[in-house]
Each structure stands twice: as structure tokens, then as C-alpha cells.
Design a protein around this nucleic acid. Sequence first.
DNA 1: CATATTTTTCAGGATATTCTGAAAACAAAA
DNA 2: TTTTGTTTTCAGAATATCCTGAAAAATATG
Lengths: 166, 166
Amino acid sequence: MDIQEGKAKFIESWGKMASDWGINRTMAQVHALLLIAPEALTADQVMEELDISRGNANMNLRALMDWGLVHKQLKSGERKEFFFAEKDMWTVVRQIIINRKKRELEPMIKVLDEIAGVEANCPESEHFCEVVQDIRKFSHKANQTLDTLIKAESNWFTNMVLNMVR
Amino acid sequence: MDIQEGKAKFIESWGKMASDWGINRTMAQVHALLLIAPEALTADQVMEELDISRGNANMNLRALMDWGLVHKQLKSGERKEFFFAEKDMWTVVRQIIINRKKRELEPMIKVLDEIAGVEANCPESEHFCEVVQDIRKFSHKANQTLDTLIKAESNWFTNMVLNMVR
DNA sequence: CATATTTTTCAGGATATTCTGAAAACAAAA
DNA sequence: TTTTGTTTTCAGAATATCCTGAAAAATATG
């Protein structure tokens, strides 16, 4: 396998996986492209490589910066902006956890806390409250674990893995 | 808050969260409905409660059974099939991990393993191989961890959480 | 076997998401 | 200030995803 084929496969696969996880496919492909680029790229280079429009490139580069996965680099003497990806996998995963936790888990927990106020006064509502309480407790625990995980050292995950596997 | 409002909020919220995670919104709503139902429901009841078509209900009930989150119950003397959801949160999460791992993580790992064969003979390909190797190692570790997690007792997660938080 | 009931399928329609490209806004250089 | 180069915006087009409903298949009952 040569480098071109490898790059194409990686970008395609990264995009496929991301879209399975509810993340825009093109956004993930831009991310993949920047991950494997040895140097920071301009928006034009991204457009060129992935064959996408200027608007699309701009939108997804901004989204990636919102997620904290891509950063701008300003080169002196150059008008254009350059973009590069965070390459450390632990940092990448951590950023994703931070974002998804805030955008998805926490709103769900808020709703569960509200719902916990339903009075259990019939078989249906009793069962309802029971299930909601279980999920609520589980979610709170997961949320705390993720907080700890986020604050942990970059080798936390690796250490945990080694401890579990051995 | 009364039981009807609570149910509606829960179903809506569960569906919203799922769609953020790349899971069909209606599938998650059917799942939510069955989670809070004290008894197994028929396809007709699901159609009625969520105001969806027969085809849609059937499709999503089958998908939920594929995921191992919902099961059929056959009542003697009844022609219709009844459906109920697995209620233990640990089992629910485990089933989701099993499925997503197989459908998404493992194919990605397969591609990464293939790509690892690219020869590093120029700055670009060297950097490419380096990044791919990092992701590959990380993914293999994650995969092993998930295997261990899947085999673990139902209180593994809870125990881990407690250990981390305290 | 014939009939009644229930489940499954799937083509076409509805909806949601993503993308394009040109214009506007912005910013540096002349 | 004007010109030139760059980024951002966004309405409409393109695409992907999901849903419907009726017909076909499957299954039970008389």
C-alpha cells in the first residue's frame, strides 16, 4: 500500500466512524486530513484535498476549533490562516469527552432531575419513578467519573488499560 | 409534575440524546417507552403511544431486539407479540458497548492495521505512519479494555466509579 | 384447506441534514 | 482611502435519512 492510498483510506474510515457517532462526516474528514498533515494547512488546501467548497471547509474548520481539536497558526508575512490538529490521542479523546458531556450528558441529567419530582401514586408512576431513579443515579455516577477522567493525567487511561488487561 | 408530563419529557429527552449519538431518534423513543412501561407492550400500543406507523414501529422494535435491548414475550392464548425492555442499566450499557464496538470500533481497527503497512520513506509518509501508529495503539488498547469491561461483573462500573470519586 | 389475524417488506413520500457558491464583511497593503 | 486578498455568511440546491401505508408474507384458528 502506498501513501496516497493509505491517506485516502484513513480519511474515509475516520469520516465513516464519526458519522456513525453522530458527528458530521466532512468535519471528521477535515480532522483526519489535518491529523496526518505534517504541516499546518490553509483552508484552500483543505478544499483542494477533500474536494469540498469554501463554505463547507470554513464551517467545519470553525467547528473543529470549537471542539478544541484544531487550532489556528498565524505565519508572519502570510495573509492566510493555517490550521493544524492536536495530535496527542489522549488530548483528542479528552476534548471529545468534555464536549459531548457538556452538550449531551448534562442536559439529559437536568431532565432526569426534573422528572424525579413525579409523585409515585399508582403502579404505572411507581414503576416510572423507579426506572428514572436508576438511570439518574447511573448518569450522575458516569458524570462524576468523566469529571475525574478529564482532570486525570494523560497516562491515566493507559494505566487503567494496563491494569485491566494484565 | 404529573406522570404524563414526566413520561413525555423522558421519551423526548432519551430520543434527543440518542440522535446526538447517531442512533435513530424513534428507535430510542420506542426504547424509552418500553423502559418505563410496567408491562410488555404490543406493536399496536407502541404505534398508539408514539403516534408512528406500523412499519416504523416494526422496524425499530426489530432493531432494538438486534441490539439486545428489547425482547419478545409470548403470552399463551394471545396471538399478538409483546415487547419489553431490559431495565438493568448496566446490562443496557453493556449491550450498547458490545454492539458499537463490533459495528464501529473493530472495522476502524481493521483499516488501521491495513494502513500500518504503508512504507515510511519521505517526510509526509513518516509523519503519516507515526500518527496512524498512535491511533492504532490507542484503539487496540481501548478495544481490550472494552472486552474486559464486557466480561466484568455488573458492579464493575459502579466500583470503578466509587474508587475514582473517593 | 379456507379464513382471520398479525407481522414484515418496501416503493415512494416526507423530513432533516449537509453542501455549494456567490455576495457581504473584514482586514491588510498600497 | 482605495485596492486587493481572505474569511464568513446564508439562501437555495443536493443529498441522506427516516417514515408511511398498503400489499405480501407468515402464522394461527376453525
